[in-house]
Amino acid sequence: MTNPEKRNGQQYLYFSHKTGDSVSVMDTGKDKPKEVTTIKVGVQPEQLVTNRSKTRLYVMNRGSDSISIVDTTTVAMEVIATVALAAEPWAIALDPEDTRIFVSCGPMDAGSIKVIDLTGTKPALRSSTPVGGLLFRGLAVPPDSKRLFVAGGPKDDTINDSLSVYDITGSAPVLIATVEGQNESPEFVYVNPTGSFAIASFRQGGINVFDAAATPPVLLSTVGSGEVNGSALSPDGRLLLMGYAEPAGGEGNYAIYDVSAIPLGTGLFFTSTYAPGPMTFSPDGTRLYMVSGSELVTFDMTMHPPQVANHVTVAGPAGGITI
């Protein structure tokens, strides 16, 4: 059976250039990752995602208020469609069925969650749900594609930094519940492969784990502290790696938490000479790729603690990274 993450013997890693209006494509099948091409996209590209078969790359262009769609099966890897949003995007998520893209747009005091339909001949913006609240920087869809988890929340006197849940079984998202977290400034949200846990990390420190199957979701555990500069969930949903802001003149600080065990316990802490940045796991979970300034750093996750396997010079800074 052909590995869907590999084409022509290559496995590709993508990261966006916030100031270069482009995406770098790296072949990670070598001893060291090697750039094979650069894709011109919109202005200030940041978050990006691929579909299950890895045939499409979706790039969120914050500066040009659009989504670029790239065909990754061709040698050129060119943009084949651009969807205008008419609002500044902050986060993007693709449903597991590859039928819809969800985008949070802001600022959230007059913002929206937009849905792009991928089932037609041409991708098209189908709905826009008004949202009031904080800037929503994290979106995630569980395996059953019935809910949308949003890192952020309504701005009122009682719930400020939280997890919002939307029913996405209809033509437009419908708010089900908002659950208050225990930390400030939600930045990322993940749903594990079984859809049982929703995991939110916060820029001002901390990890909250919620029962994603409950209505409303129930906060199960919270742990951690420090300003987060990047995070990634392993493909099996077991390990969450957190990168914390580099102290002045110090090293990059990292923590690994086993989020399959509730309540969360003490994480494995380690340091590196590389400051944290956008990061993602390899499909088998044995490697972690991170763009630190102008370096693409590969961590060997089979080591305890993880060790730098290699690093290559790239054009930074990166806005987002994915495989």
Rank of each mutant, 00 (worst) to 15 (best):
N3S: 12
P4M: 11
E5R: 10
E5Y: 14
Y14W: 07
S24T: 12
D27K: 03
D27R: 02
K30H: 09
K32W: 03
P33G: 06
P33R: 08
T37W: 07
T38K: 15
I39M: 08
L48W: 03
T55V: 05
Y58I: 06
S64T: 14
S66Y: 06
D71P: 00
T73V: 05
T73Q: 13
V79S: 09
T99P: 01
P107L: 12
G111W: 10
I113G: 01
V115Q: 12
T119S: 14
P130L: 06
G133S: 10
F136L: 11
F136S: 08
F136P: 01
G138H: 11
G138E: 09
L139Y: 13
P143C: 05
V150R: 11
D156H: 08
D157H: 06
S171G: 14
A172V: 09
A172H: 04
V179D: 04
E180I: 05
F188K: 13
P193D: 11
G195A: 13
V209F: 02
L219C: 09
L220P: 00
L220K: 13
G224H: 05
G224Y: 01
N229Y: 12
D236N: 15
G237F: 07
G237W: 08
M242R: 13
A245W: 09
A245G: 11
A245H: 14
V259M: 05
I262F: 07
G267P: 08
F269C: 02
A275Q: 12
P276E: 00
P276G: 00
M279R: 00
T280R: 11
D284L: 11
T286G: 06
R287I: 00
G293C: 05
E295V: 03
H304D: 14
H304S: 15
V308T: 09
V308C: 04
V312W: 09
G320C: 09
G320Y: 06
G320R: 05
